[in-house]
Design a protein around this nucleic acid. Structure first.
Length: 171
DNA sequence: TTAGTGATATCC
DNA sequence: GATATCACTAAA
């Protein structure tokens, strides 16, 4: 019994959505109808302009515009010229918040996750509520542990240590 | 540990 | 137009 998540699921606070996304299954349907599935093992919440780890903390730009937009939107970001990091936008319009899908159960690391799922920049601005990429709930209830987010050393002690990273403890 | 990679933002 | 930055990975 796999239930496809709808816009309603994403239209909540990032801090509610992020832990609930752990254990869900992301599905990508290719042109030839092949389904690529991977269970999400780790997410991170990014929330608001005051969150120094969030791209939107530097202000609203063309790049971060999506963060302010509709929930359920896919925000794909090219990092270090090679790796696509995949986010889902949550919350209300004009609130820059989202959840980074940091890694899957099989393929650890955000770069590997998107590579396996064949996600790239062409998905930026898409939606998880469409027919190409979506997220399923098959009833799996992971044991979730929290941890400080990674890769935001520049964000200062407060934001650096806040535990907005959610990991499936089964890993 | 370090090199490589490219879009973005920020500085001229 | 130029440069500094960056939520990473692979190779060594």
């Amino acid at each position: 019994m796999a239930v496809k998540l709808t816009e309603k699921f994403f239209h909540r606070d990032a801090l509610e959505v992020a832990p609930e996304l752990v254990g869900k299954i992301i599905v990508h349907r290719l042109d030839d109808a092949t389904l690529i599935r991977e269970r999400i093992a780790e997410t991170e919440a990014y929330r608001g302009e005051e969150d120094k780890g969030c791209h939107a903390s530097k202000g609203r730009t063309k790049r971060t515009e999506l963060l302010y937009g509709e929930s359920g939107v896919i925000y794909v970001y090219l990092c270090y010229g090679m790796h696509w990091l995949m986010n889902v936008i949550t919350g209300d319009i004009d609130q820059p918040q989202g959840v980074l899908l940091r890694c899957g159960e099989i393929h650890n690391g955000p770069g590997k996750l998107t590579k396996y799922l064949k996600i790239d920049g062409s998905f930026n601005g898409g939606t998880f509520c469409g027919n190409d990429v979506w997220i399923e709930d098959d009833g799996y209830k992971p044991e979730i542990i929290t941890a400080p987010r990674v890769g935001i050393d520049y964000a200062g002690d407060y934001w650096k240590n806040i535990e907005w990273r959610f990991i499936d403890n089964r890993k």
